[in-house]
């Protein structure tokens, strides 16, 4: 666990940054609630993977990056995108398959990306983004860019070959990559205790001579400070491995009937909701008032409604565009 001291008031984070972190957590929550609302009414096509309950990990981690650092993301990627600072309007438009979306409506929920801003994309394949993160780290090293790649993946990915190959390669080449395992407890229905031979997931990294730390993934300040340190270490000396312990409150995807876990377990994790927890911290430690934090939540909900309005008026991509962008 990160040094306890770091969880307390830390001068390096000003009020503006703290408020931005809360704002992004609330944006993620509201975005996901809106996504769930669309699905519950059968208003969108396909499937989606909600990040509700895990907001502290995406926001704490991306808050520790420089603007020019990279991320790679997962099928459960909405939180990472918002953390990295994506434009909500274009993100919502992509979710709805509209032409003003980041991917012109061709990627959808699982492929939102903004390469120019360093977001190398969500990924439909479990573990699929990990080698790509290593490649981005290689670019940074070869071009002496001093950029770090923050590579998100879940506990499900830690048993993929691509994960092991990538950790090894990044370590051998000392690439500036922070591997961040979001242990949200379940890979679809399989509990990490049943999928993974080691109970301490940081042991994965030790096999590749990589420093590893774990953190309470529902504590945004702990995530921020742990990732911050890892990012600076990666920038100087090569890869670091982090495990963020959190929980997927919603089902794996819209098809999930939650047969593999108990209501009690879900309720117990709901009690550890990272958003009220961070609000409480801001009130107690940083002179935020209840009205201040409530206003952040309210503004976030409004921003999501505005994004919906933008996305709904955006046209679907034209049939003529169907063959565009296969090749450069």
């Amino acid at each position: 666990m990160a040094d306890k001291k770091k969880q307390h008031k830390n001068e390096e984070l000003g009020r503006e940054k703290l408020e931005d972190m809360l704002r992004k957590m609330q944006l993620i929550r509201s975005f996901e609630e809106k996504v769930a609302w669309f699905f519950s009414r059968g208003m969108v096509h396909g499937t989606t993977h909600l990040y509700i309950g895990e907001e502290a990990t995406a926001v704490g981690a991306t808050a520790a990056l420089r603007d020019d650092d990279y991320i790679t993301s997962t099928h459960r990627g909405h939180g990472h995108c918002i953390g990295k600072g994506i434009e909500l309007n274009r993100m919502m438009a992509e979710f709805l398959g509209k032409s003003d979306g980041y991917c012109k409506g061709k990627g959808g929920s699982m492929h939102i990306a903004d390469v120019r801003s360093g977001n190398l994309g969500a990924n439909g394949v479990v573990g699929g983004g990990i080698p790509i993160a290593v490649g981005a780290g290689l670019t940074s090293k070869m071009k002496k860019q001093d950029r770090v790649v923050l590579c998100f993946f879940g506990d499900g990915a830690n048993n993929q070959g691509s994960f092991h190959e990538s950790l090894n390669l990044a370590s051998v080449w000392k690439l500036p990559v922070v591997f961040l395992l979001e242990n949200n407890t379940y890979a679809m229905s399989l509990n990490v205790a049943k999928s993974t031979a080691v109970s301490d997931l940081t042991e994965r990294a030790r096999a590749y001579s990589m420093d590893a730390h774990q953190m309470d993934g529902n504590n945004v300040m702990e995530v921020y400070h742990t990732v911050r340190e890892a990012v600076e270490q990666a920038r100087e000396n090569g890869p670091v491995f982090l495990v963020s312990h959190t929980y997927r409150i919603m089902g794996h995807s819209k098809s999930d009937a939650n047969r593999y876990r108990t209501r009690e377990e879900i309720e117990a994790w709901k009690a550890k909701d990272p958003i009220p927890r961070f609000e409480q911290y801001l009130i107690e430690e940083h002179d935020f008032s209840r009205e201040d934090v409530d206003a952040v939540g309210e503004n976030a909900r409004n921003a999501i409604e505005e994004a919906v309005a933008y996305a709904e008026q955006s046209p679907f991509p034209s049939i003529e565009s169907i063959e565009e962008d296969v090749y450069a």
């Binding site: 390469v115 699929g128 080698p131 790509i132 490649g135 981005a136 940074s140 071009k143 190959e165 990538s166």
Partner: peptide
């Protein structure tokens, strides 16, 4: 190393970021 997924995948990542 003998890691074809990482060999091709890191190539993809490096290519997408300017190499």
């Amino acid at each position: 190393p003998i890691s074809e997924a990482a060999i091709i995948g890191s190539g993809v990542g490096a290519a997408a970021t300017g190499m």
